[in-house]
Design a protein around this nucleic acid. Structure first.
Lengths: 139, 139
DNA sequence: TTAAGTGCAAATTATTTGCAGTAAG
DNA sequence: CTTACTGCAAATAATTTGCACTTAA
């Protein structure tokens, strides 16, 4: 079960979004931002977390909630692997490490990435964002 | 139907892979590399192409063949969109444009990309590859 | 001749949706 | 009270697989 502080942090975070803070959303928010750290979850991994903590939320609601958070700009979807979607609580444009063996995603330090030249957008288009994913394998 | 030249190009390409050049694979290869250009296909888009050309190949074989080509290093899988997989006949590490409206993937000019600093791989890991996807939206 | 490849249809996986019930403002 | 949210179960979409049949070597 999430602590009171975790719930409060999650609640504050939710309130800036216009989404109704229901029991389920507050619980999910507590799991996502409760400790002030950024997190990278899949629907399934979050569901497992929430269940392990003794909260009861249906998987469909996890999916719907992640989608709602994403639409509200609270989290960002990251596609790496084709099969599953990751949701990142860090919504700034930043690079990711992808641990191929573990199917795990984590932040890479933004300050260590420097792109000195970028292909320019073709006529009639603009760059919406640049995804940088650094794939890691164990040595 | 693919021309003789297209088939020959595809055949040559196939032969360097150890894969048995069956009727279906030669046809697919002709569609992929027949004109010497790089291509970015999904299983469905390739299936549509092949059907339109009057060749008859089952969708399952398209999937299996793309997977086999991928394992053989003839094409490379690119993940952008979560839902579908793209296969790229350009197997060198290079950046991509992703046209968000059209769900279309294309090569971005490699020589216009310059990464002057990259986060270093965490201890016990090495960088397998770096995916750079430039998301475009129409202006 | 024989192991690899093909093509259905059924299975799997990740995700979404319809809809009746529940709860927040 | 009213509208948004939740949770099941069924639907969907992309992809894989089991298995009998075909074909390249």
């Amino acid at each position: 079960m999430a602590t009171v502080q975790e719930k409060n942090l999650g609640l504050t975070w939710l309130e800036n979004s216009g989404l109704r803070p229901t029991r389920q959303r507050v619980a999910i928010a507590a799991h996502l931002v409760g400790d002030g750290q950024h997190r990278h979850v899949t629907a399934e991994s979050l569901y497992a977390d929430v269940c392990k903590a003794g909260e009861s939320i249906s998987l469909a609601t996890i999916y719907n909630t992640l989608r709602a958070f994403c639409d509200a700009g609270l989290v960002q979807e990251v596609t790496v692997d084709g099969a599953r979607s990751y949701f990142d609580t860090n919504t700034h444009d930043h690079p990711h490490f992808y641990w191929e063996e573990d199917h795990r995603l984590s932040d890479a330090p933004l300050e260590e990435l420097e792109i000195s030249a970028l292909p320019s957008a073709p006529a009639g288009t603009e760059i919406a964002s640049v995804d940088v994913i650094i794939r890691l394998r164990r040595t």
